[in-house]
Amino acid sequence: MSTVFIAFQTNETSRMIVEAITDDNPEAVVNEQPAMVKVDAPGTLTVHRATVEDKLGRSFDLQELHVHLITLSGHIDESDDEFTLSWNAN
């Protein structure tokens, strides 16, 4: 199965985003590197706005991801509530 990934700059917001991702995507693997954190997942990975808001204790617009993002892979499907990465050929 192909891996999708998303990587963020290390900071306090991305720490919460990554916690939200690992809560919602049990197969996700967190890989810390200097100044950045990369999350790999088999096939698909979803960021749920509600979980991130829960972690941050404030409202969160998924487009705020752009400020912390470093890179990603996979097809993107984004709505107001979910941001999903996936490959079609699994």
Binding site: Q9, M36, H66, V67, H68, L69, I70, T71, L72
Partner: peptide
């Protein structure tokens, strides 16, 4: 990293 954040787009 700032450049790379645009790179995802």
């Amino acid at each position: 990293f700032s450049a790379q954040s645009d790179e995802s787009r």
